[in-house]
Design a protein around this nucleic acid. Structure first.
Lengths: 320, 320
DNA sequence: TTAATTTATGAAACGCGTTTCAGAGCAAGG
DNA sequence: CCTTGCTCTGAAACGCGTTTCATAAATTAA
């Protein structure tokens, strides 16, 4: 394996000149240029990118933290990030965390150790102060609605989005409304809960804890929810659901059990995945790829901290 | 930013000793150990992993090539790879290619430049000889059925899997059978086609080109197929479909258009995603996460070239 | 008590590309 | 003819951790 010094020797120039030639810098005589390329060919030179990274103190790699790779919400987000990366000559290091804090810290450590130039959290479980702590090592971007003067956030206003869903249901006459969520403690989840509480408050209804279905993220969870719902003495007439996947699970299980949607139960999802279109699910469309792309921008530019909310849109179909 | 030499100076030891302490090597007096850690604290030392990579000639990163991140087939595969990586202290660099050859080559270049220790192709578009060319730079693992004495392959026998699907349909009395596929030229696709041709041959039927639906990968494609199918003068009575997602698209569109599944059209999918369970799709279950995990193993171990086929299983539900 | 190990430690080399800085040569401007 | 101002180069420093090798000191085995 030859290196730049071997090339220099063979081409009878200095390593500086070799570097210049390889990187297409100006101010090198054509004959030297040719000599260098000639030597590169002869020795079958391959650059060692790790030396470049060391020397430049930069890797053009962004770390992406996501709890589950195989979930359309995060896949779409990741896709957006990947598009941004591709367009800007960056690579992506993907860390699947299953919401384990140590995995999240591992991702942050890549930043600390200069393995990546920035980190994007599509979701997180670690306390905020940990992210702040690592902020000194490089840009950290988080996809949630949080105002912090050091960490940029690109997000959907889940409070408003959830509110929009609630409004639609209330407008259709629903008063007994429940909701599904992946986990309670997430920041986005909390925003949704606040919207839930506030909207119920507006129509003089109290929060019914039993109507809040936790651990709802995948399609199977939807089926579970529908069965639980069916067995309730007092059941809600409408559900605002984590995402389209869970909504689909609810709807398909409802079909099996002879529950009519939306007559017996109205359902509203989030995301607007192809599945929502196929099943005619009323949903709140979220611009996930755009979030991803913008998060990427922020992770690479780091000129100033921003907090950007991207618009959602209600897509009315047939489940409300 | 302090480095190992600063630590050495402050702790009054050599850099070799610092390195030993940091890496928990034996043969260092406890007092020096303490002195080093003390200095590390004082100077807030952060290791530069790029120097480690350069020095070791290894990065503990594996490159994963996949055409589409946001597709459950590849997501599940990636999930398996990620599990393997996590369990072995490796990180993953993900390259989304959209089947562009230059993107695939970019991934291979990461291997050549020592940015990654190995590359896994979950699917590819580049000619085989390119992969072979890069094989010299490190392990390249491909998820398709190809016997090569240099490149390991971990795969599902798509010929047999497709055959199994065809057999079921034929056994149920179908003779006019079509199929859906993502793209014709893929190696796995070709295996499927061969099985299609052969099975049709066995029952004395010829291949009907119009019954081969190309560019079927996502749910929307299924809807398109169903409509095309509906408009055919002579239509197949059964379809073996790319994957569960497309099958779901077909089934849901059929429902909308009043086409009865399986009475008017039998459908069999691949993968056995949660969606298949929810929609009661008869499908060929593929061990995607296992494929991923094994591919990972092979990408890191590289002791000898293997070709491993993993078993699939027919899951009969209600669409055949 | 001597030989053979084991423990401990540092100098120096190794992995390798980038960039700064000083200086030389040469052409255009005055 | 002299002064700017490019063009072109290379030496050396920089980024930084790992590992080998030689050596010294302390044990243990014989």
């Amino acid at each position: 394996m030859s290196n730049i010094r071997d090339i220099a020797k063979l081409a009878q120039v200095s390593v500086a000149t070799v570097s210049r030639v390889l990187n297409n810098h100006p101010y090198v005589k054509d004959e030297k240029r040719r000599a260098v390329w000639q030597a590169v060919q002869e020795l079958d030179y391959q650059q060692n990118i790790n030396a470049v990274h060391l020397s430049k103190g930069k890797t053009f790699v962004i770390g992406v933290v996501l709890p589950y790779i195989n979930h359309p919400y995060f896949s779409r987000l990741l896709e957006g990030i990947a598009d941004g990366a591709e367009a800007n000559g960056y690579k992506l290091m993907v860390i699947q965390t299953n919401y384990q804090v140590d995995k999240e810290v591992e991702a942050l450590d890549m930043l600390r150790l200069k393995q990546v130039d920035g980190v994007i959290f599509t979701s997180r479980n670690s306390p905020w102060h940990i992210l702040k702590e690592y902020r000194a090592y490089g840009p950290v971007v988080v996809c949630e609605n949080k105002m912090d003067n050091q960490i940029s956030t690109i997000y959907i206003d889940h409070y408003q989005a959830f509110q929009r869903g609630m409004e639609l249901l209330i407008q259709k006459g629903h008063r007994k409304i429940g909701y599904c969520i992946g986990r309670r403690k997430g920041s986005n989840s909390q925003k949704r809960h606040e919207a839930y509480r506030d909207q119920l408050g507006k129509i003089g209804e109290a929060v019914t804890e039993k109507w809040i279905f936790e651990r709802c993220l995948h399609m199977e969870d939807g089926a579970r929810v529908l069965r639980e719902w069916r067995d309730m003495k007092e059941a809600p007439t409408a559900l605002v659901v984590t995402n389209d996947l869970v909504a689909a699970g609810i709807i398909l299980e409802a079909e099996k059990l002879g529950v009519s949607i939306p007559d017996n139960l109205a359902v509203i999802g989030f995301d607007d995945q192809p599945l929502a279109e196929a099943l005619q699910i009323t949903t709140i469309q979220l611009p996930l790829p755009t979030i991803g792309k913008e998060a990427f921008q922020q992770a690479t530019q780091d000129v100033k901290v921003i907090h950007k909310s991207l618009p959602f849109e209600l897509v009315e179909r047939k489940t409300v």
